[in-house]
Amino acid sequence: MWIDFLRRAFMQAIPLLFGSTGEIITEKSGNLNLGIPGVMYAGGIGGVIGAFLYEQNAASINPFLAILIPLLCSLALSLLMGLIYCFLTVTLNANQNVTGLVLTTFGVGIGNFFGGSLVKLVGSDVPSINLNATSNYFRATLPFADKLGWFGQLFLSYSFLAYLAIVIAIVMAVILKKTRVGLHLRAVGENPATADAAGIKVEKYKYLSTCAGSMIAGLGGLYYVMDYANGVWSNDGFGDRGWLAIALVIFAMWKPNFAIAGSILFGGLYIIHNYIPNLDVSGQELFKMVPYVVTILFLIFTSIGKSREAQPPASLGLSYFREER
């Protein structure tokens, strides 16, 4: 039972980890992208569109292409979302909160729209989208995982995207902490005027990190639909995980490596209601608010304690216009 709980918590954690890693590197540049939930929907539907078109048009399914095409489609669509956000907030100095919220509406709309209308749009005669074939490749795990008992179950029984999430989080943590690019990016988010004076191209960093962040977050949507949901798209199925990912950013104190543990914790909290004995459905619903309550408490403690390490990047949410001093 414990192993099953941890395994499920981990599977819940993966989309959150993608989302929050993406949002962390976005926020590190000072962009508060509240469009991440929409970006994750877009990433998910991108994969669906790619897989669907491939399954429809390919005579036989090549495992390599079955993964590559949805992956690229997912990345492309999330990149597009990131570009929209950057163009409006960085180039045109639009308000970040409003832009982000519209991006969420837009992204969720795109997800649900294509999820619901894709079959009709391409004039296919299948009754509904079912991407079992490609999904199987996404869900492929190490062949010897189930021979290793609890160890294999707990650590080796996941698909490549799950491990990719952790790798990306670690790589991002290293980049932020140990490289010049990371240093410059953090400077842009903390104090764009200083970064500008030091010769760092503020706009470039904002674009790069926000677009990269969107693409990473989009992978969370891809993982959810192609792996977790077995390739079956259901409208609004992704739910509020995007917002949970944003909450996780606060909890991880803007550190991707902390987000790994945090996402597993949140993933556990997300499903813990299933594991509490004698809990009726209404009680389960109450339990589902725990991650949000924890985040709020964390937010309060860090602001009262004024802990410098747990604060958002100082220029978060503000647009930077050089001539405004």
């Binding site: 240093l183 410059h184 400077a187 903390e190 104090n191 970064a195 030091a198 010769g199 760092i200």
Partner: peptide, 22 residues
């Protein structure tokens, strides 16, 4: 013109594009 949450060294090398390892 300093970034508050950075260390002295990080501020000092900010914006330098040295070749070679960071």
């Amino acid at each position: 013109k300093l970034v508050d949450v950075f260390t002295a060294t990080e501020n000092i090398i900010l914006g330098l594009e040295d070749n070679g390892k960071y």
